[in-house]
Nucleic acid binder design. Structure first.
Lengths: 212, 212
DNA sequence: TAGATTGTTAATCGATTAACAATC
DNA sequence: TAGATTGTTAATCGATTAACAATC
């Protein structure tokens, strides 16, 4: 990309993508920023500003072609490619993610799942056999992995993170409750479920529900 | 609370709480905003500004008492109370959350889990029997529920959301991939895993990893 | 007392919204 | 052509950072 896109914009893209998908499903072929803004409960100005970070996708007097815009955002999000993923930590969350079919549909393919627990090793999760984490380095040397999903306790997460970075993994989807330190070219996306739940309990107990 | 606290501040509180917990575990009794800022990789100014939204917890020339600050943030986050939760949708994610013990440790108690699938109804998840979703309204009429966790497909989510709001539930932890419309006094906290993964694929494929 | 560090005001920076000329 | 709606610049708003007097 040319100029720096702010994180706020990036985080809104999946939501645009979802709404455009819904419009497509409903057979709507064109949409103005105004109409979309009403549906999404944001300003039309913000939509146009956001999109214009990436190109001129609309047409004056007409609006946007839903299908075209959908395809463009898909490309922007990198969803025109496929990704190889491994899950490290085959506990509750790790197994749930492995079982969730929608990720595969979008091009995120789980090709390996690892754990330290001997009672889990060998178990079969949707066609993937849980492997001993000792085999991780070997596996990474013969498979090209785009994203490692870290669903393990935080102490182990830090250690494993080191290993996978050395093996060249550039994307980390981190579910463990710790901040991972990584080089600049390694991207970490955090899902801190506990933090999310705490945010909810804050809002519930602060009694200030003006406009969350 | 007196004045309006910005969402940006609220979202940072759980992270402060986590770092203070770590400090406590390491036997550190006092910390300055400067020291903490280095550990957390934020500015000292931001830490002081954030905390002063809620009170004057520090002491000039000394810094902050770790234990006191930890306890205060705990209260601010509403973690000095306990919450009754139900899980609606006993699929992969729903079961994973029910099985995850750390939530209970923090005062979030799962006291019911529901599904529509007859093959799941009756199954036992950590002592909770999966109930028929037909029994939901009855259950809500005799139990006080603070938070409903929605881990079901989006079409069902919208319908169920309506029901639980009518039954007086004020907190929703929404894992389904849809924006729920709710009255002002009902708080929704979203966990959109697919969006999170798309953000990661954006960053990976944009090639612009300046400072995410 | 002198040094350290807060709480808070002021300055800066960035993100959102408004406005409008360009143009389909 | 007239109406609609974009892309983009300018104005506003809010959040972050810097500075410093107060004070432990």
């Amino acid at each position: 990309m040319d100029k720096k896109i702010s994180l706020a914009v990036i985080k809104r893209l999946p939501r645009y993508y979802r709404y455009l998908g819904d419009l497509l499903d409903n057979g709507i072929t064109r949409i103005s920023s105004k109409d979309l803004s009403v549906r999404m409960n944001v300003t039309a100005s913000q939509i146009r500003q956001d999109l214009n970070n990436f190109g001129c996708f609309g047409q004056q007097g007409y609006g946007y072609s839903v299908e075209f815009l959908y395809t463009e955002i898909k490309k922007i999000l990198g969803l025109d490619k496929t990704y190889n993923l491994i899950i490290i930590g085959a506990g509750n969350i790790g197994q749930a993610l492995a079982n969730y079919v929608n990720f595969q549909k979008r091009g995120f393919n789980f090709i390996g799942i690892f754990d330290v627990n001997p009672r889990l090793i060998g178990l079969n999760i949707r066609g993937l056999e849980i492997m001993d984490i000792d085999k991780l380095e070997k596996f990474l040397s013969v498979n090209s992995i785009d994203i490692a999903v870290l669903t393990l306790p935080k102490n182990n997460a830090v250690k494993v993170c080191q290993t996978i970075i050395e093996c060249g993994v550039k994307g980390i989807w981190n579910f463990s409750h710790v901040d991972l330190k990584t080089p600049d070219d390694v991207i970490v996306e955090n899902v801190h479920l506990t933090d999310s739940l705490m945010t909810l309990s804050y809002k519930l107990s602060s009694g200030d529900f003006s406009d969350f």
